[in-house]
């Protein structure tokens, strides 16, 4: 019995390891390519590189302007996350505990934002941003991303707040706490976990966003990492596979590192996004 169980476990792990390898195979392949010369790639894409040419990564970093692009991405993502988390928390608190007459109409308007795809607004948004002078601006991108991410943020924080017992808020009211005190001293200390999940998720959305940067940022020096990577392919490097692979490596590795560090947060956030 015991032996059968052990064999069982071994087979199970064998299948899982094989699937895991298959999953990461495309990424591993690209990682190797980044170190190869173009002739090596053409000779045999599956072989190991003749030498670990780290200078190719460095060259891709410089030629692809990834330094400034990383800064651009941060400059967009950080304000976006702050805006979404703050505005969502306030709005969700108001909707749940704010005793706002007609709150359900506000909620319905937010729900609308949750069900319409980005494509529904993109053309008009482009022209509106232009009218406001926010095209070709990192701030414009931040504002647009925050606005688009807001409905989900409000929804997520709201469903958390709905789980806070009403008694707790009433007890605080009786203790003399006004709206601001209830929010600051009772609700916010309880909301750190969902707020962090929301922040993680929103950071990922912002970092990975492609369509909004594509239409908003025209000046090559303003590109985000994601957009910069896209133009690596369409630009002068169409046939330079080393360059493209190195670019993929440069952009993918930090995401993966952050993901593995914050795995629990990420998976909780992404699946909560689906379930909630």
């Amino acid at each position: 019995m015991r032996r059968r169980k052990t064999r069982h476990t071994l087979i199970l792990h064998g299948v899982l390891i094989a699937s895991a390898l298959l999953t990461v195979f495309p990424l591993g392949l690209i990682a190797l390519m980044a170190f190869k010369t173009n002739p090596e790639i053409f000779a045999n894409p599956l072989a190991l590189p003749g030498a670990w040419r780290w200078q190719q990564i460095g060259k891709a970093w410089t030629d692809g302007h990834f330094g400034p692009y990383y800064l651009n991405s941060l400059q967009v993502a950080v304000p976006t996350v702050l805006m979404v988390v703050i505005a969502s928390t306030l709005a969700a608190y108001g909707l749940v505990f704010g005793r706002l007459p007609g709150a359900r109409y506000a909620l319905a308007a937010i729900l609308l934002g949750l069900i319409v795809p980005l494509q529904a607004i993109i053309v008009s948004l482009f022209h509106d941003l232009g009218d406001m002078g926010l095209l070709n601006s990192l701030w414009g991108l931040s504002l647009a991303q925050a606005a688009v991410g807001l409905p989900f943020g409000i929804f997520m924080m709201r469903s958390f707040f709905l789980g806070i017992p009403k008694d707790l808020i009433e007890a605080a009211r009786l203790d003399g706490a006004g709206d601001v005190t209830v929010l600051r001293r009772v609700v916010l200390p309880l909301a750190t976990a969902p707020a962090l999940t929301l922040a993680t998720l929103q950071f990922m959305y912002s970092w990975n966003d492609f369509l909004l940067p594509l239409i908003i940022l025209h000046d090559p020096s303003l590109r985000t990492v994601t957009l910069g990577l896209f133009y690596l392919q369409g630009g002068t490097y169409t046939l330079n596979y080393t360059m493209i692979s190195a670019g993929v490596l440069i952009t993918a590795v930090p995401i993966m590192v952050v993901f593995f560090l914050l795995q629990r947060q990420f998976i909780a956030g992404v699946t909560a996004g689906a379930v909630k």
Binding site: G98, L125, A147
Partner: peptide, 18 residues
């Protein structure tokens, strides 16, 4: 205070273009 910030983002950048 509560809905102001959200409205400031949501109305011009989502609702109006929609």
């Amino acid at each position: 205070i509560f809905l102001g910030p959200a409205a400031l983002l949501y109305v011009p950048f989502v609702l109006k273009p929609l």
